[in-house]
Write a protein that binds this DNA or RNA. Structure first.
Lengths: 193, 193
DNA sequence: TTTATTTCTTGCCAAATGGCAAGTGTATTT
DNA sequence: AAATACACTTGCCATTTGGCAAGAAATAAA
């Protein structure tokens, strides 16, 4: 199995010699996942970290009326995790579900801990992954405060255009913090310009 | 200087023997800060991590019209950081400003790195701090998607009532993602019930 | 192909929130 | 005390977004 994409991703988070990135990448196990599989289920404990090589994944939970709320959309290449459940080994509040067929790499919690212990670069890489994801979430939060739904839509369109060919609009709408009805109108508005 | 609160906070993030928490706490340097001081300024690099023992702090940036946007409000006890700027040692996009007089503890980036290298527990503690803050931000994001402004207000009121005695409403409004005008109306609505 | 199922759009109206400006109140400074 | 700055509220109206239901379009299943 060719782990080149994973290696490149690791190096992009923390520059390191190619052999080292390969060493780390080789400790991940490859898996393929069909559309609509659950990688993590509410109330269970996240036992492994996932790297998404290709495909789309979302995390979701439910609001007080029992409606699904999409909390995140993951667009390859990236890591897909519930950090709280994984690092604290406690039950998650979210569901993580593939939206398309996916190519994935996983590593168990034990293996991660062991690598943290053995390799300073692996620790540093793990920290960079956390910091990067924190920063992405922060940007998204800032967008929620200072942009309209239309601007958030346009921004997502620009940053991750492929999502729109692979993810239903109702899921994208929920991720953007609006209803599918409103998203439909926003798209109409834009196409009228 | 008594670092008991810091020690307790460290232990709450990662259970450890008291002597170890004390060892780590002792490596922080105490400082007092007056109201309205800037701990970090846009485009500068965050050189130290801060623990807020008492007082209130906010982070803010500007929207496209040059208006301030409050991105976060920190209510003691907690850590106050721009993780991206601190851990990557790159220029920040935010300003961090005290809203009241504050009691603080700081540690330089070099000291943090050195402690990460020397103490597995310190690394673990650092990771827990990141994970915890990520999770808090995630909850806030979820709230933006699934709650109305009124519900977000009530939730903040319940979780951090002291903020309302110490932070101007216009700053709280911005943090909640609404205008001060709307917040004023929401408060009126609630008091009418 | 036909039938179901899901997704997306649209019309109607209600509710939530924003923009602006004026007015009131409350600190702070001089 | 007077003057100044800042924080908060309110009225008026515009804009954004939501809720519901019906229908159209696309997709999946039989």
């Amino acid at each position: 199995m060719n782990s080149e994409i994973l290696e490149k991703y690791i190096t992009s988070l923390l520059p390191m010699p190619a052999y080292k990135a390969k060493l780390f990448a080789n400790q991940f196990e490859f898996l393929e996942s069909q559309k609509n599989e659950l990688l993590l289920e509410e109330n269970k404990i996240s036992k492994e970290t996932h790297f998404l090589e290709s495909g789309f994944i979302r995390s979701f939970t439910f609001d007080n009326n029992g409606n699904e709320v999409t909390t995140n959309i993951f667009s390859a290449p990236c890591f897909v995790n519930d950090f709280l459940s994984f690092f604290k080994q406690q039950p998650t509040k979210e569901n993580i579900q593939t939206l398309t067929n996916c190519r994935l790499w996983k590593m168990s919690f034990q293996a991660v801990q062991s690598n943290f212990h053995s390799y300073p670069e692996f620790r540093e890489f793990g920290r960079m992954m956390l910091v990067t994801n924190y920063s992405i979430l922060q940007d998204r939060m800032l967008g929620m405060i200072k942009h309209t739904a239309e601007n958030r839509y346009l921004k997502l369109m620009k940053l991750h255009p492929h999502i729109f060919q692979n993810v239903p609009l109702k899921i994208i709408a929920s991720y953007l913090g609006i209803t599918d009805t409103s998203l439909s109108r926003i798209r109409k508005e834009i196409s009228n310009k």
